[in-house]
Design a protein around this nucleic acid. Structure first.
Length: 365
DNA sequence: GTCTATGATTGTGC
DNA sequence: GCACAATCATAGAC
């Protein structure tokens, strides 16, 4: 408003300028008082009234004002005002550092595969989530595809909205730039100022962009939490996996704490995660300890099974060796003792043990 | 619907 | 970080 007042004050002093002097600010200043002020009054009135007119009328009025004989004088006064005011503007706008919140949102969208390259986007996140969920590959494949499909949907919406935003921003920027360029004919506007205006527009639009990113992040978080909640939907391990785990547990009953390597091996064998193996052993130890009696039968079964497997391995090894080798007889005796111990422990399972193992029990001497 | 088995989670202690 | 203990939540049998 101050500028406008100053401008008006300045203009009132222009009234008596000769046509030849209008381009010269000094001449403008020199000739001041005593001249008719009608022209200035008219021109100001026209400028102030221009916003109340229709578009066509305003265009016509603008053209008329551009051709007005006082226009160069007006321009020079505006230049002078600009010179004075630009100092206060200069330095105000410096390069803003990147907004940390936008950076966080960008990083998250990138990590979730919403922004950035599409290839594999989301599948890594889905796999990680699935690993945490602990489902077997086949079990979780349906959930994976569902997760990926929904993530792709979010991605699509995000990009489409982003495109719309960028288009709107670009359209608006172009519009403002054109407007400023046009206005630069009647008032002094440097290219740098246009750039600054563009930066201001972009800053304004970036808040919209941040909202878009924020809501996209929220959508991803909701999707992710829903997907991870599925882990509470317990699925029993398959029979083979349980057998493998039980075999290990009962064959290491004196120390049922598998090492990290053993856990990994078991996890691989069972098609489950290492943490699931840990969970299983944790549950098993405590439940076994609480009710050893209940688990005794199971323990016996697996002890037999382990023994059979061991015996099979020994038998195969001894068959592979020559019967004439000095060790063969010794091996047979060892096996017999082993078998006897199994009979003592298991009692009722001995028959099935022998039939299953299809062992050739070595003759006693 | 109830009960049991079982995988997962949580809080605690070392 | 790991193990334990308690608990939750669900699958599956009946």
């Amino acid at each position: 408003m101050d500028d406008q007042t100053r401008m008006l004050t300045g203009l009132t002093g222009l009234s008596g300028l000769a046509q030849a002097d209008v381009g010269d600010p000094d001449a403008v200043r020199k000739q001041s008082l005593g001249q008719p002020q009608q022209d200035i009054g008219d021109i100001l009135q026209q400028i102030m009234a221009i916003t109340d007119e229709s578009l066509d009328e305003a265009q016509a009025r603008k053209h008329a004002l551009n051709c007005h004989r006082m226009k160069p004088a007006l321009f020079s006064v505006l230049c002078e005002i600009k010179e004075k005011t630009v100092l206060s503007i200069r330095g105000v706008q410096e390069e803003d550092p990147p907004d940390p919140q936008i950076m966080r949102l960008d990083n998250m969208l990138l990590a979730e595969g919403v922004s950035g390259p599409e290839k594999g986007g989301g599948s890594a996140a889905a796999a990680a989530a699935a690993a945490a969920a602990g489902g077997s590959p086949t079990d979780s494949s349906i959930e994976h595809s569902d997760y990926r499909a929904k993530l792709a949907q979010i991605r699509q919406i995000y990009h489409s909205e982003l495109e719309k935003y960028e288009q709107a921003c670009s359209e608006f920027t172009n519009h403002v730039m054109n407007l400023l360029r046009e206005q630069s004919r009647t008032r002094p506007i440097s290219p740098k100022e246009i750039e600054r205006m563009v930066a201001i527009i972009h800053r304004k639009f970036s808040s919209i962009q941040m909202q878009l990113k924020q809501s996209t992040c929220e959508a991803v978080m909701i999707l992710r939490s829903r997907f991870l909640d599925a882990r509470r939907k317990r699925r029993n391990f398959n029979k083979q996996a349980t057998e493998v785990l039980n075999e290990y547990f009962y064959s290491h009953l004196s120390n049922p704490y598998p090492s990290e390597e053993a856990k990994e091996e078991l996890a691989k064998k069972c098609g489950i995660t290492v943490s699931q193996v840990s969970n299983w052993f944790g549950n098993k130890r405590i439940r076994y300890k609480k009710n050893i009696g209940k688990f005794q039968e199971e323990a016996n079964l697996y002890a037999v099974k382990t023994a059979v497997d061991a015996a099979n391995v020994s038998a195969q090894a001894s068959q592979a060796n020559s019967p004439a080798t000095p060790n063969s007889g010794q091996c047979g005796i060892t096996m017999l003792y082993f078998n006897c111990s199994i009979i003592q422990v298991t009692g009722m399972y001995v028959c099935s043990f022998i039939s299953k193992a299809n062992l050739k029990i070595p003759k006693m001497r």
